[in-house]
Design a protein around this nucleic acid. Structure first.
Length: 680
DNA sequence: TAATGGTAGGGGAGGAAAGGTAAGACGTAT
DNA sequence: TACTGATACGTCTTACCATTCCTCCCCTAC
């Protein structure tokens, strides 16, 4: 007998995944596997609409039909109902294709098997349940019972050390040494577990050789006396991962290769979340003695590593150069050995990794991972460089923390910075980068940048009332709710917006607007805001170390390219409401005298009227051609060349272009109309 | 209600507070 | 000579601004 299916509300909240409100239904005998949740958890994207995700992974789009049109389509003709059906079918087929392509089911099944939780838990619950499940698997073998602890909120504990970076642009290879699975290996090496934790009293009764005292003053009994559960779980996970990695290397079939890769990834994630579990204060079994000891060991180790490397690799000890640790974060150190070629740096890196590993308890191991050459170190957690794993060629350009990998800026910024870095790091062509940047700035100020490139998105992490400061995306979300509650962003959604021209001194949240609304109402963009608040600082940060402090600002932001601004006037709000539009001459833009408002040109330009008419006709044709191209492209996308385009996909650059050209076309048509009585 | 991995850190934006300046108010001397 | 009004000038208050600092918020590194 099947249960009655009912709809319920759930909220899920965690620091990693944010807060979301969902509807749930119970279906007996079937596992519900929501692709949206998979994507939200596993991929960091600028937008999570089916359209945008499909384009991202499958390079395929679907028609986006606004909910208000659906009723019209249904109650229309056979033809419109057919379109609705196609739309619905696409809605169903795309998720399946995505599931397939991303191998979601396979990876999630692997995870479920490794951690021992039902498949549905992986999407409806957090990380903790997986660790609890593994703990229970172990405790049952040892006849232990997991206590049901009352949750009490304690203080936060100290985390990892981030070494102060020696900022700058490095033209010498920088070797990177990493501890492999740092926190799990610390827990294994020092036998840190609930079952090995000693009270002060218990420690006093033991021989000093039987237990260790961690850097933050907690005592744990050694594995020889009693081996902890957590180290056992971790061992199991990491040996399984090693095996999966070895199998992965042997495997030739690309499909099975992906499966094994998914498996080893799942194992890595599980191992890492064991530490997080002990530090999760709002959790099943928090144990800050363990988590704070783990981080304390980590802090000690990174300082030690820095010292060991710098003390050994110097001219005094017979090496060619003095090595210098220029940066390090949690489990890694970046070393400038001084060698000027990648191969030599790699050799030194490998040697140093082996040397340092000797100084730590098994299974802690420092590994040589890669060389950056050249390397641009901007600040803590922000750097870029060419990534070498073999001496011959670089594998990729690696960017950490900077605008190219962040989702909370305009795509224009990410693209510009990325291209500049390519020119600076790969081509080593600062002049080319500067010229390119100037071009883009000029394009921006002249309104030649496509609006899709200017859309900023931010996640709505709480409801309006919970925000103590006004934020652009939350204020806009509220505004959109008033316009149309159905399509407005909800809690946990990413809100797209652009900054439009507004009164002088207006706050950003007053100038944020829905991109589609902007298009439909031809609201001008505040290009200056984009230059000053989006482009300027990131550009300064990457250019300054390379072309020199002080002069960057002059080179990039002063000069002709910033003067070609076209004046834009707002059509809504501000003073614009009181301004009266005057008819101007199409030839010279002079204001037409009273009584002549309907003419096309002024007296002065009259002789050139036919020439001007030709010019306007030409640009009309150009626009028409452009529009036709975009229209056909959209028709192709919707899969029929015989029907109107209804799509309003706010993630599609073509949609924005089509809308813009449509507006331009209308305007141009108006211009032509003014020549009305022109005689040939 | 039950359930929600961790800390470190950069950087943009808003908002309060402290600081600077010009205009006006007021008093005084001539 | 006494009184009054006009003017100039200095000091204080006030309103308005730009700047600084702190906090919130988002996102990322590990």
């Amino acid at each position: 007998m099947a249960d009655k299916t009912v709809i319920g509300n759930t909220t899920f909240q965690s620091r990693a995944y944010g807060k979301r409100e969902n509807k749930v239904i119970n279906i007996s005998g079937a596992v519900q596997f929501d692709l949206l949740h998979v994507l939200l958890r596993d991929y960091k994207l600028r937008s999570y609409t089916l359209n945008s995700v499909s384009y991202h992974f499958l390079k395929e789009q679907k028609e986006d039909v606004q909910h208000s049109i659906i009723t019209d389509l249904q109650s229309g003709t056979d033809q419109t109902r057919r379109r609705l059906a196609v739309y619905c079918m696409k809605d169903a087929i795309l998720p399946i294709r995505l599931l397939d392509k991303l191998m979601c089911i396979i990876n999630y099944m692997e995870m479920a098997r490794v951690t021992g939780v039902p498949l549905s838990y992986l999407l409806s619950r957090g990380q903790q349940i997986k660790v609890v499940s593994q703990l229970l698997r172990k405790t049952i073998l040892q006849d232990l019972i997991l206590p049901s602890q009352k949750i009490e909120v304690g203080d936060e504990y100290d985390g990892a050390t981030v070494l102060d970076p020696v900022k700058g642009y490095y033209k010498l290879p920088i070797a990177t040494l990493d501890f492999a699975s740092l926190y799990p290996s610390i827990m294994m090496a020092h036998n840190l577990c609930y079952t090995s934790l000693l009270t002060k009293k218990a420690a006093a009764e033991l021989e000093p050789t039987d237990y260790i005292i961690t850097p933050c003053g907690h005592s744990f009994v050694k594995a020889s006396i009693r081996k902890g559960l957590l180290p056992e779980i971790l061992e199991h996970l990491l040996t399984a991962r090693k095996k999966a990695k070895a199998d992965l290397k042997k495997e030739t079939d690309p499909f099975k290769k992906k499966v094994l890769d998914g498996r080893q990834l799942a194992l890595k994630i599980s191992a890492n979340s064991v530490y997080g579990f002990t530090g999760a204060q709002v959790g099943k079994l928090p144990c800050l003695e363990i988590s704070s000891s783990v981080t304390a060991f980590g802090r000690q180790m990174i300082d030690r590593t820095k010292q060991l490397v710098e003390d050994k690799y110097n001219i005094k000890n017979g090496y060619k150069y003095d090595a210098k640790v220029i940066y390090g974060d949690t489990d890694s150190v970046m070393v400038r050995f001084g060698a000027d070629n990648v191969a030599e740096s790699m050799d030194l890196g490998k040697e140093a990794a082996a040397f340092v590993s000797e100084h730590f308890v098994q299974p802690i191991k420092l590994e040589f991972e890669k060389v950056y050459f050249p390397y641009l170190l901007i600040s803590k957690k922000r750097y870029a460089g060419l990534y070498y794993t073999k001496p011959e060629t670089y594998d990729k350009m690696d960017c950490k923390g900077i605008e190219t990998v962040r989702r909370d800026n305009a795509p224009l910024v990410a693209r510009l910075i990325n291209n500049c870095l390519q020119k600076l790091l790969i081509d080593r062509d600062p002049d080319g980068a500067i010229a390119y940047t100037k071009n883009i700035i000029s394009d921006l100020l002249c309104n030649r940048i496509d609006i899709a490139e200017l859309v900023i998105t931010k996640e709505l992490t709480k409801t309006e009332d919970d925000y103590s400061n006004k934020q652009a995306h939350s204020v806009l979300a509220e505004k959109m709710k008033k316009r149309d509650a159905g399509s407005a962003p909800k809690l946990g959604d990413r809100v797209p917006y652009v900054i439009v021209a507004g009164a002088k001194g207006a706050k950003a949240y007053e100038k944020a607007e829905d991109p589609i609304y902007v298009l439909e109402n031809s609201i001008p963009i505040d290009t200056k805001h984009y230059l000053e608040h989006q482009l300027m600082n990131p550009l300064m940060r990457i250019f300054e170390p390379i072309i020199g402090e002080g002069k960057t600002s002059n080179v990039l932001f002063k000069g002709e390219h910033t003067l070609v601004k076209t004046l834009v006037t707002a059509k809504v709000g501000g003073l614009a409401r009181f301004a009266k539009k005057m008819a101007t001459c199409i030839g010279c833009r002079a204001v037409l005298p009273k009584g002549h408002e309907n003419s096309s040109v002024c007296q002065h330009c009259k002789p050139r009227e036919s020439e001007l008419f030709q010019k306007e006709i030409t640009s009309l044709h150009a626009l028409e051609e452009k529009f036709n191209k975009l229209w056909t492209q959209c028709q192709r996308c919707q899969g029929s060349l015989h029907e109107d385009v209804l799509c309003t996909s706010s993630d599609c650059p073509i949609f924005y272009m089509r809308k813009k050209v449509q507006k331009d076309l209308l305007h141009q048509d108006g211009v032509i109309q003014r020549f009305g009585d022109f005689e040939w």
